[in-house]
Simulated scan of single mutants.
Amino acid sequence: MRRRRAEPVPVALDTYGRTVGSLIAHGSVAMTIQGRVYRIAFSENGFVVDAPRMLNYESTDCSGAAYLEASPSPPIA
């Protein structure tokens, strides 16, 4: 009996071609953060934030990557 090949899962890529997460709907990606899966909205310009939020940085001088706080919505899985 022949095995069926699994269909490839569409993914969202960042500017550098790295996988961000699995595409689950137009403009929505499932992204694993610290072992939990979240649904995150995005556009061709980046992640979509529905309300202005403060950016957080790991460094005290605000250099490096900027982070947004996670939304209060529950994770997917």
Rank of each mutant, 00 (worst) to 15 (best):
L13G: 05
E58S: 03
T60Q: 04
A12N: 05
A51D: 15
Y57C: 12
E44M: 03
E58A: 07
T32K: 15
P74V: 06
Y16S: 11
I33N: 01
A70L: 15
S22G: 02
R2F: 05
V37S: 14
G35K: 01
D50E: 15
A30N: 10
S73A: 13
E7K: 14
R4G: 09
R5C: 04
A65D: 12
A25G: 02
P72Y: 08
I24S: 09
I76Y: 12
A77C: 07
S43M: 04
T60D: 10
M1D: 14
L23V: 10
S71N: 10
M31D: 06
M31I: 08
M1C: 13
G46A: 07
H26I: 07
R36H: 07
A6K: 14
Y57I: 05
D50A: 03
V29L: 03
H26W: 00
A51N: 11
T60A: 11
R18E: 15
T15E: 15
R53A: 15
F42D: 04
Y67H: 15
P75F: 06
R39K: 10
R53H: 11
S63H: 13
S43H: 08
E58K: 06
G27H: 07
R5Y: 03
G64F: 07
T32F: 02
R36C: 02
A12L: 15
I24T: 10
S59W: 09
V29G: 00
R4Y: 01
S71A: 14
D14Y: 08
P52C: 05
P75R: 11
I76L: 14
P10V: 11
E44D: 09
Q34W: 08
G21K: 02
P10S: 04
G35S: 04
R3H: 09
G46V: 02
A12F: 05
V49Q: 09
G21N: 03
S22K: 13
Y38S: 08
Y38A: 09
G46R: 07
N45L: 13
R36L: 10
Y67Q: 09
D50L: 02
M54D: 01
Y16V: 02
E58G: 06
V29M: 04
S63G: 12
S43D: 13
L68F: 13
M31E: 14
P72H: 07
S22Y: 08
P8M: 08
S59M: 13
R18T: 05
Q34S: 14
S73F: 03
P10Y: 01
P10T: 09
Y38R: 15
R5H: 12
V48L: 12
D14L: 08
R3I: 04
S71M: 06
S43Q: 06
T60S: 11
G46L: 05
N56W: 13
L55T: 00
R5A: 15
V11A: 03
A6D: 10
E7C: 00
P8V: 08
T60C: 01
R4F: 06
V37N: 11
